[in-house]
Structures are given as C-alpha cells and as structure tokens.
Nucleic acid binder design. Structure first.
Lengths: 141, 141
DNA sequence: TATTAAATAGGAATAGTTCTTATTTAAGAT
DNA sequence: ATCTTAAATAAGAACTATTCCTATTTAATA
C-alpha cells in the first residue's frame, strides 16, 4: 500500500521506480526531523544493506531537482532534507540543533501583503522563509 | 587609524591583538559580500603571505564565539561569514548565489509584534531571520 | 525475452574544515 | 628593557561530507 504510494510518486516525476529510490522516499516520509544524508542512510540500510552512500546522495539530488524534496539550510555545514513541500518555516533550537517545522498561514499572508506593498528594488521574490532561532522549553526535550 | 580600530575591537572582546586577527577583521570589514573562509584568505594573504588556513578558520571561530561575526546559512554547504551585527535579513539570488543584506525596521517591528501576540508553544524566540529567495534583475548584475 | 538507457555499487577523489604539535609571540610582571 | 608564560600561529596531516568515476546491474518498453 505505502510502497505503492512511493512508486506512484516516483512515476509522477518521471523517475524509474527502483528499490533504492523507494527506500529513500520511505525514509524521508518517516524521519520527520529534517534528516541528514547520513541519517537517511542509517534508516535505509535496515532493509537495503547493500545500498551505496553515493546512491543516497544521487537520489536526494534527483529528488531536489524534481522538486520532491527541499534542502534545509543549517549553520553546521551539513545538508539536511525536508520532504514537506507545503510552505512552512523552521524553528532552530540553538541548544540541541533540532529543527522543527512551523506552519502559519496568517503569517504568510502578512508577509506576502507586506512585500506586495513594499517591493525590493531590483529583486524578484520567489519565496520567503523564516528562520526562527531560539530554544525549546526544557520540559519538552 | 583603522588598524587601531581593529585593535580596539579585539581588546573589547578580550582577545590578544595579533596581525592575523587584525587582518581577518580588516577583510571582513572590506568584503561586504558575506565571504567564505576562502575569500577571506585570498584577501588576507595580500598583506600576510604566510598566514595559515587553519589560523583563518580558528580566528573566524573565535570571532563567532565572541559574537563579533555571524555565520550565514547557505544551501551549498560552504560556510560564509557576516561582520554586520545589526539585525538584518538576507536576499538569496538563486541564479548567482549572491547573498545581499536587507535592512527593514518596519518589517522587524511587524514580526516582533506578531510573535508577541501569537506565541509559539514551548519555544522561546531569540531571533528571527528572513531568507528572501529570488533573483536580482539582470540589469543590476 | 531482448534491448537499452538509466541507475547502482563500490571505491577513489575532492573540498571544506578541523586537529595536532612544534614554534612563535603578545602582554603582563619584573 | 627583559623575562615569563599562556595563548596564538604555521604547517601539514587527518577527517568528514559530498561528488565523481566506471564497470555492472536493472527497470521499462518493445
């Protein structure tokens, strides 16, 4: 059932359906935490012990090109990936380096309106992302 | 005169005044373009041909720790540095990868007010940064 | 089932950054 | 002005994340 879901997703993007790609998609779907390539590998290896690291990177690159996945900017210089494509922002925890999604349509509205009114000269905006930096309350960690 | 300025800045942060640190500060002051460590080295080497790469990295790390410099998140996995500490946002050019500063106090006000009203549960906000993604008009490039 | 372009494994290569250690130096004490 | 010492630096090795290379395998289609 879910396997099929991933297959369809790949077909939709005109990609051949391979076990490796399916596995990476599955990993992205389950690792909600903006995983690094390495975390994805850890997950994928469970069921695909022979997968090569290069394949994971290649696959992720392909997904990014096809717009199925986004890269997430971090301050540590390791790439992280995000399978959620709906417009959202990120909460960055300074202490734990955890990155969490933040959805807020009202905020998006405000931003869009603001930049419609106040254009930036010589710059065409395609997207706006907030990095909300701070710390999670200790209780929740 | 300016050399002295850098010296004082270092003293203010309780750092020994060395030619290497002064040179890196000078580079950061002149390379407005959110330079990478490599660009900084290129600049510094002009007057300090013997400076070691490691020293530049170490120095930058020290400056970041002391809060004299910020790291800038990028999507390419290379670290970039920013000597401007005033609250500001960044314009990311998708085509050229240029990163430019964007100052807008009105926008900051709006954001601060918005998040005062609408708190994020379990998260204490320390800073908010906008990544404004798009392209510069070709004329200006 | 055969064909073929595309995908993968495996490992080497690269780039950016950090680490290690012997040597040098800035800054305070004498 | 010189001595002392902890801190900073040079030089290059080591490490890590990522990309590249190529022979082999495979998915999709005929």
């Amino acid at each position: 059932m879910t396997k099929e879901k991933y297959g369809n997703k790949l077909k939709d993007s005109n990609l051949k359906v391979t076990p490796q790609r399916t596995a990476v998609l599955e990993a992205l779907d389950n690792l909600k935490d903006h995983p690094t390539a390495d975390k994805i590998k850890e997950y994928v290896v469970k069921n695909n012990p022979n997968i090569a690291v290069g394949t994971i990177y290649k696959t992720l690159e392909t997904f990014v090109e096809k717009g199925m996945v986004n890269r997430v900017k971090t301050e540590e210089g390791v790439m992280r990936y995000d399978a959620i494509l709906d417009r959202h922002h990120h909460l960055y925890c300074e202490e734990t380096k955890r990155i969490e999604d933040f959805f807020d349509d009202e905020l998006n509205e405000i931003l869009i309106k603001y930049f419609e009114k106040k254009k930036i000269s010589n710059f065409a905006i395609k997207d706006i992302k907030l990095q909300i930096i701070g710390t999670f309350d200790s209780k929740k960690n």
